[in-house]
Design a protein around this nucleic acid. Structure first.
Lengths: 235, 235
DNA sequence: CGATTGCTTGATACCTCTCAACCCAGGTGG
DNA sequence: CCACCTGGGTTGAGAGGTATCAAGCAATCG
């Protein structure tokens, strides 16, 4: 066996709680998991309704979360009402694990969702002696970094059509049915994630439909009719 | 002493090499440092001339770097010649420490610079038993993440003037003389970092000068005459 | 000097934003 | 059941900001 250490997630060890892995924690058990990670959980599963705030930018609650069900967004606000969504989180994803005492972003429920909270302090303490856990934390941070960098590239150098193509392909991967994307979020969320306005999102989707690349049976369901064309745009 | 663990950089321990810290490693010694980090160094200090490639996107050299002198940029290229600069690195900064076998970005010398290389594998091995080093890696990753997120926010939701104000304030912090910024990079680098064209960068700087907010004695030196106005824009 | 390179400036085109109207589905209440 | 309201989404017209294309300028270098 090689001693090479990779940063890939989900590697785990017998001793390490899979806190950062994309494990299918369920609503009522938040497990079953090996004993230790249960001990790090702050309280019971928490439920949030659509658009409810989970924590605010600047809150210094020393806590982070894992999504059990639903979708969560993290975002920042600038003056005059501008909002930038940093990321969406789906079940199994960890969010709110940040440096410093306070949260850099606020987190809100995109749709009704359930999350479980962990005490950051407890995890950090445990990581000192648990090499697997400390490795999970690093994997998580490096993965988040790569995602944020890709996001920045998109925001800086892509057109509206290219942004939407990339966005649809990203969510197609999360979809069980690979060519029909079910969106959990409203148009405004898409716009604030892609650095566009809601009108431009709408117009661009309509244009892609006119071009035969996608189909919009309902506003929240999008059929990808020509994935190749999307990939040409989104790349 | 509290057992609280912070993610702040530069905390160090006696045993941990300060590889990720912003320590003033010098040109000829790349030290003096405690013994261990010397052992992790791949070779002698390497020199690169302006615009020379240090590594390319996709290269799988299992190596990362620390800047000794000069400035380095990491960037990605899209089709039809578009380029997005992810970050600039100044002396003391670490770059090229990424997940996966291959580099996600290419790295190039902004100006003549000197860097020192570390074997990623060696550092990872050492981090397994060295808690301080493993902590440094996490601090580094979390700090990079926060920077990338801030960058994305700027690219998505700021105007040209706001981007340039934020950019100037960022570099003012690196400047010894706090109100005169000496830029190591050309206009094209600024443009590709801010998601603009070189013409827009030039026009916007001229406009800020006409408004009395800055002064441009030479193209690479910028006097900040009204920091408050810049902060109002850049925030 | 002339050539080169990086930067600035100008004119115009294009993309996205802004503001406004309209549409549509769902919910409510008479 | 239907009129009405509401909220999200779409579409249109016009404005504005940035890109594009092109020319001019200044510093550097042979």
């Amino acid at each position: 066996m090689s001693t090479q250490i990779s940063f890939s997630a989900n590697h785990g060890t017998a001793a390490a709680p899979a806190i950062f892995g994309h494990t299918p924690w369920t609503e009522d058990t938040a497990g079953p998991r090996p004993g230790r990670d249960r001990a790090l959980i702050v309280g019971p599963v928490q439920h949030f309704t659509q658009d409810q705030e989970i924590y605010g930018e600047g809150d210094d609650a020393p806590i982070f979360f894992k999504v059990i069900s639903g979708v969560v967004r993290t975002c920042k606000f600038l003056g005059n009402g501008r909002r930038q969504i940093d990321a969406f989180y789906v079940p199994g994803d960890v969010f709110g694990f940040e440096p410093g005492a306070a949260h850099n972003f606020s987190a809100e429920a995109v749709c009704d969702c359930a999350v479980i909270a962990f005490r950051r302090h407890g995890v950090e303490i445990l990581a000192v002696t648990d090499e697997g856990l400390s490795h999970q934390m690093l994997s998580y941070a490096m993965g988040s970094l790569a995602r944020a960098q890709e996001h920045a590239l998109m925001l800086g150098r892509k057109s509206a059509a290219e942004k939407l193509a990339a966005f649809l392909l990203e969510w197609a991967e999360h979809s069980p049915d690979s060519d029909v994307v079910s969106l959990a979020m409203a148009r405004q969320d898409i716009a604030d994630y892609l650095g566009l306005t809601i009108e431009t999102v709408s117009r661009t989707l309509s244009q892609l439909e006119r071009e035969g690349i996608i189909e919009l049976p309902t506003t929240r369901r999008i059929r990808l009719k020509n994935v190749t064309a999307l990939e040409d745009l989104g790349a």
